[in-house]
Design a binder for these strands. Structure first.
Lengths: 338, 338
DNA sequence: ATGAAAGCGCTAACAT
DNA sequence: ATGTTAGCGCTTTCAT
């Protein structure tokens, strides 16, 4: 099977006996082509199955009609955002490109700028960035950030009410009678993580429970880190009766550790996560969690972006918006009365 | 906030006082640049935050180190495949681009060729196509198909055992004592849909239950179509006690209709789907379904593709493989004894 | 109505 | 070691 190259505009022109320029005009419905000629060109296009190269086209033109979703990695969270963006883009005539590139080794931050640099100005007309960590992105195209690090002056942002979410998690565990509650915290550099912890601590405080530092261990939003620290936490003599993990990925890692240690769940240990990613719903027992409406966040981000893209060029630039969606407790099977 | 354009290689060259070619050499670690010069160039690159344009670069070179996932739309199924592909691509040094473009009006088939034409040869080194419907794709780059229409001679394929899956669905309902069982069939042009129905019919036959044509209504894998036909089905005087929907999306639509009609679920009606998309697990009660390991299918497809891409150029081309993964019954809350 | 030619940002072969 | 140049596929003036 010899991979037959895709036909180029040159081959179409050759076959139709016209110039490349004429073919281009036909394809883009420009004036100044005789109907007979256009007909002939279209026939050849159909015959050869020609379709213009997105790459070449976007290098030459301003407008590409493509929206980018830039992510550090395609995991459940960003995939969910992606679905939301697709919900909105569908039917608008825009095309959708999701771009994920492994960070260079040891480089967790800065991918936003690189991704944007590699695609912006060409290929995409605008972008939704998922969980960017850099604040001073010099933007060549309109951008909307989903769940970003703190301090994106000028960037429209969509996120969830992480503060109240942390509060909800603590309240749920307190309602169940738990008092020795640990937390696997999130990535210290992320706004969302800070707020979840802050809300959590506040709720504990309101219940009159002093926050014990040794019960706050790093989870980093990273299953591997979480696994290590959950193990340490659960093998202590006075292990906690409940754990709040800053996101579902680390909550699931915690469940795995508990299982390995033979700890009865939820009898001897309650675990609550944050995010409500599909994976939490699909395991047994289902993971109790604080939901943030991820897909809806994608939808709202896409809407915001499309608004900017379709706004009259001369229109006064709207101030950067900040959309904050509600979080919500989802009780499943991993939490129980102490 | 004036969108500052991304810097180009020209600006870097200008700033560093060298030619564009020299900058390119430095960036690509080519020989023939004095260390002092290289140093200076790198400094400017860092300073300006320059990153080469993926588009321009891919237009010029053969190799882009980018893998494409081409989909008609980003819905739960394709998103799940995408995650699987990302699992494998992660850490390989390849970048990942997912591309979705709305079909032109009324054109459900043919997107494969268009997508491939728009990206192939440029931008991507190879592609995973999700649920393509066209068999005679003239491929400019290596391609692996996930869950394709029948008859892709020469294309490596990854799919699930749909035949046995249909069988499993029927067996489950029969075991629960159901005898008047309806099916919302899938898209008639898709291999997967045909096999699911075939397996389902076979199991009914083995149980000595004659297949009643009026109990097979089209679902088309489409929630809207399913909703309409499920309504018709459930308002008949002799409505079925159980429904097998050819995929989860249509099963969920069926649940919605049943709810609207006030039918007790699963007391008065059992519903089983196919796919095990996250949405089925997240609703209440959870959807009983036949699981196909979608994410794993994405992983296997990505592996197959990477094998082809990294194979020695001179190596004998391996024959097109066909990987078929097992399906599995997942019992949740929407099926019960009759 | 048509085509020649320039140029988008980049790389690579070929001078110097 | 560095620069000049051609060209990837396409669109868009500008001649003709």
């Amino acid at each position: 099977m010899t991979p037959s190259r895709r036909p180029t505009i040159r081959e179409v022109a050759l076959e139709a006996g016209v110039s490349v320029a004429t073919v281009s005009k036909v394809l883009n419905n420009r004036y100044g082509v005789a109907e007979a000629t256009a007909e002939r060109v279209r026939a050849v296009v159909d015959d050869l199955g020609y379709e213009s190269s997105l790459v070449a086209r976007s290098l030459r033109t301003q407008q590409t009609n493509v929206i980018g979703v830039l992510v550090a990695d395609l995991e459940p969270f960003s995939a969910e955002v992606l679905k939301g963006v697709a919900d909105v883009v569908r039917g608008t005539g825009y095309e959708l490109v999701a771009y994920a590139a492994a960070s260079r080794v040891g480089e967790h931050i800065g991918w936003e700028r690189r991704h944007l640099s590699r695609l912006g100005g060409t290929l995409i007309d605008g972008a939704v960035m998922v969980t960017p960590t850099v604040t001073d992105i010099s933007t060549s195209v309109p951008i909307v950030a989903v769940d970003p690090h703190a301090g994106h002056p000028g960037l429209p942002v969509v996120d969830a009410d992480n503060l109240n979410g942390g509060h909800l998690a603590a309240e749920h565990l307190l309602d169940l009678g738990h008092r020795r509650i640990a937390m696997l915290t999130g990535r210290a550099d992320l706004m969302s993580a800070q707020l979840r912890e802050q809300g959590f601590r506040a709720a504990l405080g309101e219940a009159g429970i002093p926050a014990a530092d040794q019960l706050f261990v790093p989870g980093d939003y990273d299953p591997d880190v979480a696994e290590k620290n959950a193990y340490e936490l659960l093998t202590r003599p006075d292990r906690p009766t409940a754990i709040f993990a800053a996101n579902d990925a680390t909550a699931l890692a915690t469940l795995e550790v508990a299982r390995r240690l033979g700890i009865d769940l939820p009898g001897a240990l309650s675990v609550i996560g944050f995010d409500n990613i599909p994976d939490g719903a699909m395991c047994t027992p289902g993971l109790t969690t604080v939901e943030q409406p991820i897909r809806e966040m994608g939808r709202r981000a896409a809407k915001l972006l499309l608004d900017r893209l379709t706004a009259e060029p001369g229109t006064e630039e709207a101030p950067a918006e900040h959309i904050r969606l509600d979080t919500r407790l989802v009780v499943r099977g991993t939490t129980a009365h102490v």
